[in-house]
Amino acid sequence: MTALEVQNLSVDYAQAHGRPFRAVHNLSFSLEAGRTLALVGESGSGKSSVLKALSRLVRPAEGRILLGGRDDVRGREYRRAVQMVFQDPFASLNPSHTIDHHLRRPLLATGRARRGAPADQAVTELLGQVNLTPAADVARKRPHELSGGQRQRVAIARALAPQPDVLLADEPVSMLDVSIRLEILNLLDRLKRERDLALLYVTHDLATARHFSSEIMVMYRGEVVERGPSDEVILAPKHPYTQLLAAAAPSTGATREQVREGRRVRQAARAQRDAERREIVVGDGCRFRPRCPFAMDSCVRRPPEAQVGPAAGGGSGHGALCWLYAEGAGKAPAATVPQQKPAP
């Protein structure tokens, strides 16, 4: 079931002079109940603008956001249905209030529990769901008395309090220690299954995106340059940018020779495109062109969204926004950027 559908979303920011800056350009996707969609991108790719638009913190310049098939959902109802987990657990909890306050307020404000005993019970249940026990002790504490992982659990519990259909997770683990990241991700994964949530997992980490989502969208400068089933996008990336991202991730099992070889190829590719030295403004064409090792003449025009893999059931298949895969284009490069070692 489609919980949230985004059609041709564009987000603009006013600039001091000149045209507004377009942070998100013509983005369409849908979030399905019980499934995770990962939105992968680096800083400046526009992924936080997508989140702001989805959480109605900014008004989109163009496009529609349909909740349960309707785009005329009133504020109150929308807020109840779409909740967000923020990146920084140290900033997302109010230092002057107890944990209890953080959970009780959304319950009361959205009418999910009545004042008094029902709310007490709901708070206890929420804390139990995110494995913060004994609930009574935790509820009394203030944020500074909790560790980063515990705070993030509280933030998740707060987002669950209005019983949302859609959960937006904005880099939920990037500020946490490595050893507790997976607990939080596993927790989100479990809650998604138990509550049939539609989860949008925004991250810059390809590896967790692959492991925790069924589909991946890769964003670059406001556009989705590649999307598809997560294994296909990561193991057989088609867009040069995705290939670059995949090549940049460390490979734990590689031998010294493989590492050295990988470095040599990367540096050759880098010399070829020489990114930092000709950071040119792109008009209508492909935005990755200045950094792309395969840039060609046709790239000055807007690239088409090409189908690069079979349209598997459920998703819309594997697609890339690139001239290399346009109909009638020359042979696509077979991943010139070296792939990581094969799976053992």
């Binding site: 997302s92 909890l93 002057s96 307020r105 404000a109």
Partner: peptide, 28 residues
């Protein structure tokens, strides 16, 4: 623009409550 104020807006807290309960104590 702190995250906790955004979070309160996200669950539909009323404006006066955000000011009095979420912001004011931190300026005490």
């Amino acid at each position: 623009t702190r995250d906790y104020v955004l979070a309160a807006r996200l669950y539909g807290e009323k404006r006066w409550r955000i000011v009095l309960v979420e912001i004011l104590p931190n300026e005490a």
